[in-house]
């Protein structure tokens, strides 16, 4: 099990030596639980860092934000930025580097292994705790320990883990500068794509009906897009500002910009949004499951992205986030490609 002191010492040391200009990690939330993402810049802040089963956020997103912030402020980075990364965070960082979004030397990865468990799904915890409100969560081997007003409650990790973590084959961040915790690569507690496989036992008609209903429920808060480290486009097709506006852009051009998707959160527009997003994530989604976690109306978005991921795996033996130098599913081209149409 990872000792939080090791994470803090590593971060403090890196900051003190000036090897990194900041460390992205987690600290306790204002209500104790869940943890919240934080960017620390001074060695003494290292003691704020926490590591518990509510560190579910994919911190690679905050790397993306940091890069955008620097670009807007026209600043150069200087020293690399440090980041505490779980398996899925590290996979996301790898994809971003594969896409040349950052250079490897600009990021210092402090890997943390999820070892035998992973992160909680809050709705599963709520179901099991029967009304008790946990104020803190901790790893405890095969269990999670929750502090509640009625004392400590322990629950088997498997019962309350997020689906993405149950199915995770890479809870160890392969790409790292330093790694803490045991390497448990290959440990899926459930078969990979288990939730998808269960869903696919339904007939095509039932599935279409299911998705129509789900997309009808979407309120287009765009949390799924905002939380995804892969959705880093400066201008998204769904926004009303999807043309670059320059001083010479005319009123006519602004008025006549193509509106791919209307603002109304209605089924037709929502479907277009979700289909566009799923396609843009094919071969890029690392199954951190964040989009599904944040959806306020519980739309099971992993099913969409997992479907694309499984297709890529079965047809091309492709695994997103496996190696920085490797080819990327949709952006790489080979002279000896077996498909004549592409040569």
């Amino acid at each position: 099990m990872i000792n939080i002191q090791d994470i803090r010492d590593t971060a403090r040391d890196l900051l003190a030596k000036g090897e990194v200009r900041a460390v992205i990690g987690w600290r306790a939330g204002s209500r104790g639980m869940p943890a919240e993402p934080v960017v620390i810049t001074a060695p003494e802040q290292a003691d704020e860092l926490v590591w518990d089963p509510t560190c579910y956020h994919n911190l690679a997103l905050h790397l993306v934000e940091d890069r955008k912030f620097l670009a807007h402020a026209r600043k150069t980075a200087g020293a690399p930025i440090g980041i505490i990364a779980k398996g899925c965070d590290a996979r996301a960082i790898v994809v971003l580097m594969q896409e040349n979004y950052f250079k490897r030397e600009d990021v210092y990865i402090i890997g943390v292994s999820c070892e035998g468990s992973g992160m909680i799904a809050e709705w599963k915890v709520a179901r099991q705790l029967d009304g008790a409100v946990p104020t803190a969560a901790a790893f405890a081997g095969d269990e999670f320990a929750f502090a509640t007003a009625a004392g400590e409650k322990r629950l088997p990790a498997r019962e309350v883990m997020a689906d993405r973590c149950l199915e995770c084959r890479n809870p160890f961040p392969k790409e790292h500068n330093v790694a803490l915790g045991e390497d448990k690569t290959g440990r899926a507690l459930e078969a990979p794509f288990a939730a998808l496989a269960r869903f696919e036992t339904r007939s095509e008609g039932e599935r279409w009906e299911f998705w129509q209903r789900q997309f009808d429920r979407c309120i287009r808060c765009f949390a799924c897009r905002s939380v995804c480290p892969m959705c880093y486009c400066e201008e998204c097709v769904v926004d009303s500002i999807n043309i670059a506006v320059a001083p010479e852009t005319t009123a006519e051009e602004k008025a006549n910009r193509i509106r791919w998707i209307e603002r109304s959160a209605v089924k037709s527009e929502n479907i277009t949004y979700h289909m566009t997003r799923a396609i843009h994530l094919a071969g890029r989604c690392v199954d951190c499951g964040e989009c599904e976690r944040v959806c306020p109306v519980n739309i099971p978005l992993r099913l969409l992205n997992n479907k694309m991921e499984r297709e890529a795996r079965e047809r091309f033996g492709y695994e997103p986030g496996a190696s920085i130098g490797g080819p990327s599913l949709v952006a790489s081209f080979r002279d000896d490609d077996p498909g004549a149409f592409i040569r």
Binding site: V39, H62, E65, C221, S226, V294, P296
Partner: peptide
């Protein structure tokens, strides 16, 4: 706002947010 991801959950779920387009 350092951790803010800029999604619309807070306001779309608020009983008093009323901005419109």
């Amino acid at each position: 706002a350092r951790a803010c991801i800029g999604c619309g959950i807070c306001t779309f779920l608020c009983p008093t947010c009323h901005c419109f387009d």
